[in-house]
Design a protein around this nucleic acid. Sequence first.
DNA 1: TGACATTGTTAGTTAGGCTAACTAAATTTA
DNA 2: TAAATTTAGTTAGCCTAACTAACAATGTCA
Lengths: 151, 151
Amino acid sequence: MKRKKSSAAAGEESQELALRLHAAAIHLLRRLRQEDAALGVSPARASALSVLAFGGARTLGELAAAEQVTAPTMSRLVAALEADLLVAREPDPADGRVVRLRATAAGLRLIERGRARRTARLAARLEALAPAERAALERAVALLEGLLPEL
Amino acid sequence: MKRKKSSAAAGEESQELALRLHAAAIHLLRRLRQEDAALGVSPARASALSVLAFGGARTLGELAAAEQVTAPTMSRLVAALEADLLVAREPDPADGRVVRLRATAAGLRLIERGRARRTARLAARLEALAPAERAALERAVALLEGLLPEL
DNA sequence: TGACATTGTTAGTTAGGCTAACTAAATTTA
DNA sequence: TAAATTTAGTTAGCCTAACTAACAATGTCA
């Protein structure tokens, strides 16, 4: 390992931290899966729908990129959301290839209604933390959010 | 909402934080999925195998509980790992129903070898963080790990 | 105008989660 | 001790979600 002595430890530490982060993410999602299911919409769909709900209309390709999945994957998610009348397609007046997607009123309602329920158990646990702990988590999430686009 | 006035804000904040954590976990895992695939073993299998590799032999039910999946799900994961000769079954001498699982030498090697690669990109990003930032993440992960069993 | 690029869709595969229904073994109880 | 119940795992069947490959339709440009 070629590395300045002071960061050899940082390397070890980062790897250890990466593994723990990975494991924590896996386990967190397995827990939250059930909550999402109770909403009547699967996690991947809820995630895509919330992008449209909070971020506004966009094309399928843009949504796929935002969600970091391939176009076919997003195409299927959108098809399911559309079948449930949660998302509507609109043709792009300027380009006949693109499909613009928009959350319907029902889609917006579902996200709004589900917002609390989806993460209720987790939020309750977080609320039980000491303010300083919550602040630490908050900071860590912000760091992660900054890291993700470059991963 | 019955709550002391000072924690009404904490409730909002917790919910917001829960949503962000959820989204971050989803996106993090989508990124790491590719790395895992390169190892030649899928994420769920790698996770189960590493429990055996680091934590030692245990029964299928214990492993399912540790991984927070149902017994049938774990049964299938284990069958696949066994077919790849990464995990071996041993009968329990005291109880004919239980199946004890142990990582094989090949399984241990795979985890050891894969440890670095699995999270290499993430670890590299983490290493680029300032020590204080890494410490904040570390603390947050520890908090999460403490929270998860009660979720 | 014809070649190429871009946007989405369709088809097919693999993986991982679930529940329900089963077998086999152990334990409890009448 | 025999019957009933509980526990551990497996099998089967279903669903969601990811991928790649191949395709159709549209736009762009030399």
